[in-house]
Write a protein that binds this DNA or RNA. Structure first.
Length: 504
RNA sequence: GUCGGCGUAGCUCAGACGGUUAGAGCACUCGGCUCAUAAUCGAGUGGUCGUCGGUUCGAGUCCGACCGCCGACACCA
């Protein structure tokens, strides 16, 4: 049976509407999922929305809705955006679904049964929008340091997860799994948090009702984080379908932003250990997309929404940019200008124009019928390198490097045309070989780039006269040199990526 | 304050384990080509790798100090 490959995004909190930060994570996960489908893996790709918690409860009240109505509306917006961006998730989980509520209760009950949950009292200065308690010295003139508004004194009986008992087990787990957190810098950050010492954390609330009830204590609901994290287990049948669960767990690849590193790289593995599960195999932590060097935020009014960019660059232009222009890990600065530059150079000039010039010459010199490539083409080796480098890069969670490797093949094909000047040649075997080579490169590029640009690659595939779609192909065989059979009608068509003029 | 990260060509960034003339893309300059979306190909200009000191036969690459920027610091999606 094929290899299981389970990849997740965080579930997005329905307090915020989808912006390019959410899209960045989701597109990356999608490309990874698509790459692994090319490899023939048994892929399961999960995203979803996080819908409990006080913020949702309050915001629903303010809007005169029930919390669920509020969640329904925003969750739908996420699904719409993912559909627009051609996201191929196999499931979309909502934390308000019965399957998840049951799963959370089972998961937490098992931590309880294993003796890692105790009763305690929590009290402190509480900020409602933050859903968080603050120490006195964190407050700014008695107000919440984030929102600058008054905090409330709250005291409640809570259930506590004995995180402190997992300090050493976590250190052991990190030591035994050197690759569990990517990139290395983020792994060190997580280790730093653990080494600074872990205290027990409160996992339940009595002050709110919008949450998953604590099964052993009616009147408590789980604090939103301890509900949310468990979604990754829910979706593959935790507690209900053991066979399926065991197939995909713990071989899960979880992508997340650095803001939630603590929860995913410390609390979540500890919860897994407490529940008797192996922690996730790999946590891929990325940085933020900055705008003008600043973090995107609602209050700064500098959020950028996917639809606005898709209108200008198209879905694949959007996807390509976010996969190619930022390496996965460090923060990256988003700018419209650099997006235009990248679009023009990589997509219009290199890729789109290659198809254009090839199709024209085939039309003029080969009667529009694409010839087969030469078996001994110098491009064969370049193609093999591209495949090898791209494979390694995807494996290392480096989409940018994978696309870079793919585009080196495009560059080599453009140079090959330049060197042979087929437009000067008379029809015949020599001309056929040059054009066949170029068509073969386009065919291979379609396969290698389809995780990033599925729609465009399928278009090009069809224009080359090939049957089916690139994402039905299987690596590595499909990328072996010589796959373009020749004798197929090649269609020029409109430019794939019309050049954009640089912004003023 | 404590902990962590970053500072490499005009711009965006790559550069395990220290090792011949420090790389890529974009921008720029020159040349070629004209099949192509004024696209493409080739060559080139451009960096005392934040500063100072140390270890070493040899250091962006290790150690120390300093300067600058950023993040985390316990429940801030």
């Amino acid at each position: 049976m094929s290899n299981p490959f389970y990849v997740t995004t965080p579930i997005y909190y329905v307090n915020d509407v989808p912006h390019i930060g959410h899209a960045y994570t989701t597109v990356t996960a999608d490309a990874l999922a698509r790459w692994h489908r090319l490899l023939g893996d048994d892929v399961f790709f999960l995203t979803g929305t996080d819908e409990h918690g006080l913020k949702i409860q309050r915001s629903a009240e303010a809007n005169g809705m029930t919390p669920l109505e509020q969640a329904d509306a925003t969750s739908a917006r996420f699904r719409e955006v993912w559909q627009m961006l051609n996201i191929s998730n196999d499931d979309f989980i909502r934390t308000t679904e019965p399957r998840h509520i049951a799963s959370v209760q089972t998961f937490m009950q098992s931590i309880f049964d294993n003796g890692f949950i105790r009763k305690g009292t929590y009290s402190g200065q509480y900020c409602v929008p933050c859903e968080a308690y603050y120490n006195d010295d964190d407050l700014v003139e008695g107000n919440c340091p984030i929102h600058g508004r008054p905090v409330e004194w709250l005291e409640e009986d809570n259930w506590f997860f004995e995180l402190s008992k997992f300090e050493q087990p976590l250190l052991d787990w990190y030591a035994a799994n050197p690759d569990c957190v990517h990139p290395l810098g983020k792994r060190n950050e997580a280790l730093g948090i653990i080494k600074q010492g872990l205290e027990d954390v409160s996992v339940s609330r009595t002050s709110i009702s919008w949450g998953v009830p604590v099964p052993w204590d009616e009147g408590h609901v789980f604090y939103v984080w301890y509900d949310a994290l468990i979604n990754y287990a829910t979706a593959i049948g935790y507690g209900t379908d053991t066979e399926r669960f065991n197939r995909f767990w713990p071989a899960v690849h979880q992508l997340l932003g650095k803001d939630i590193l603590r929860f995913h790289c410390v609390y979540w593995p500890a919860m897994c250990l407490a529940a008797g599960l192996e922690p996730p195999a790999r946590l891929g932590v990325h940085g933020f997309l900055l705008v003008g060097g600043e973090k995107m935020s609602k209050t700064r009014l500098n959020q950028i929404f996917p639809a606005d960019l898709v209108a200008d660059f198209g879905v694949d232009g959007f996807r390509y940019h976010f996969l190619r222009d930022n390496s996965f890990g460090p923060d990256g600065d988003f700018s419209y200008e650099s997006m235009v530059t990248r679009y023009n150079t990589d997509l219009a000039n290199n890729f789109g124009n290659l198809l254009s010039r090839v199709a024209t010459v085939v039309g003029k010199k080969c009667d529009g019928i694409g010839p087969a490539p030469a078996a001994d083409s110098p491009l064969a080796e370049v193609a093999a390198e591209s495949l090898r480098d791209a494979s390694a890069a995807w494996e290392a969670l480096a989409p940018s490097a994978a696309l870079d490797a793919t585009w080196r093949l495009i560059g080599a094909a453009n140079a090959h045309l330049e060197n042979n000047e087929p437009w000067k040649m008379e029809p015949g075997p020599a001309l056929d070989a040059v054009m066949g080579d170029a068509l073969e490169v386009l065919r291979i590029v379609c396969i290698l780039a389809t995780p990033a640009m599925p729609e465009t690659c399928a278009h090009v595939w069809a224009r080359l006269g090939l049957a089916g779609t690139p994402d039905e192909q299987r690596l590595p065989e499909a990328a072996a040199w010589g796959g373009y059979p020749g004798g197929l009608p090649v269609i020029k068509g409109d430019p794939l990526f019309p050049r954009m003029s640089p912004p003023k």
